[in-house]
Simulated scan of single mutants.
Amino acid sequence: MIGVAVGTMALVVVLSVFNGLEDLVRGLYASFDAELKIEPAMGKSFEADENWIRGIQEVEGVALLTEVIEDNALFRYRDNQHLAKIKGVSAAYLEDPDRFAEGYVWGELDLGTESQPRAIVGRGVGFFLSLDLDNEFELLQVYYPKAPRSAGSIDPNQLYNRDIIKPAAFFSIEKDFDDNYIIAPISFVSKLLNYGQKRTSLEIKVAEGHKLQTVKRRLRQHLGEDFLVKDTDEQHASILRTIQIEKLFVFITLSFILAIASFNIFFSLSMMAIEKKKDTAILFAMGAREKLVKHIYLKQGAIIAFSGALIGLVIGFAIVWVQDNFGLVSLGISSSIIDSYPVKIVWTDFLWTSIAVIAITFLASYRPAIIASKVKSTDL
């Protein structure tokens, strides 16, 4: 029973950690990405005039709409260079109250004006370029290649667009964002990239009181098949799928370990069947049938299974609750945005763990029950 309880507890704790990691990833991405993202079904960009944008804003449930132009560019600060993504956003980007809710921000969250644009820089990019927010005389230089022309030119300045922008703040959310993103006003990026009215995506903030999936369905109906509308999970489907697959394999692995531990039940019931041969023979002499004897041993296994599962579930729940409320097990990383391992209790995990434990224990009890039911008085 102790082995069953320990295995059950381990399953509950480990699955809760994976749930916590999945929630943490969702929270981190949600503070940088939009709740809904509109992208072209084909191609990299699309034309977005004012009337078309206004039509999307009038869809029921749309609270904020941010126009986005995103592409790779080369950044230079003093003698340092770094290739990263420049993300041009409209003014609504910083109006979202959940923007950068997770993570850290240094400096002033301000994109400046059209004449004096300012950039919000990922911490990793700032480290690579050795940016100094307090230096008023050094500005960030941005280079973007021009479209190729038929006639060549010996002047390298004709091969790229160049502009300057002042870094205003650093953000730190997740390494992939920190090392690869610089956020700037959309007017600055549109001019640098020669995009005009073209956009690479639109980001939607859902109004309070409206269900995200409902608004997503309305936008799909409004936009038609030429555009994709993705929620947060769909925007990062690969990493979330990876976490779920890892969780599944961990569940299978721990269930296999639990199956090995259940050999104790198998041998215990087998020894009991041997020791109780005389008692079993007496039962048969009194008129008991094989089915009754088999049920006796199966019920003995069921008692072990339910007792072990219940104890393991209670202890596992207690450990997860303590970790969630007090954070006893620390990550040990001073720069992390969280201090302790994230955990989350999902009741379906308790259900599947209980089913796995009971099924494994039942299988371990079945063979001893068959052996005991075959005992006859002539065998003594």
Rank of each mutant, 00 (worst) to 15 (best):
I165V: 13
L131T: 00
A151T: 08
F128W: 08
I165K: 02
Q141V: 03
F127C: 02
D134W: 03
F127H: 13
I186G: 01
A184R: 03
L192S: 04
I164E: 14
V125R: 02
L192T: 06
Y160H: 15
S187T: 15
K198S: 12
L159C: 00
I183H: 10
P156V: 04
D132M: 07
Y160S: 04
I186N: 05
R162E: 07
L193G: 07
L129G: 03
F177E: 12
S187G: 13
I164Q: 15
V189W: 00
P167G: 00
T200D: 01
D155Y: 15
I186W: 00
P148I: 06
P156Y: 13
I165D: 01
D163L: 08
A151M: 04
P185S: 06
S187H: 10
F128R: 15
N180C: 03
L129W: 00
G126D: 05
G126H: 03
S150A: 06
N157H: 08
K191N: 12
V189R: 02
R199N: 04
I154Q: 09
D176W: 05
A168H: 07
Q197A: 12
F188H: 09
K198D: 11
G152T: 07
K191W: 05
D132T: 03
P167R: 03
E138Y: 03
P145C: 01
F170L: 02
Q158P: 00
S172L: 11
N180K: 15
F127M: 13
S187W: 01
F170W: 09
F137L: 07
P185N: 00
V189T: 15
Q197I: 15
A168Q: 12
L159R: 09
V189K: 00
S187R: 08
N157S: 11
Y160L: 07
I173T: 12
S153I: 06
R199L: 13
A168T: 05
K175G: 14
V125T: 06
E136M: 13
I154G: 10
K166P: 04
F171E: 09
N157C: 01
V125E: 01
S190N: 09
I186F: 03
S190M: 05
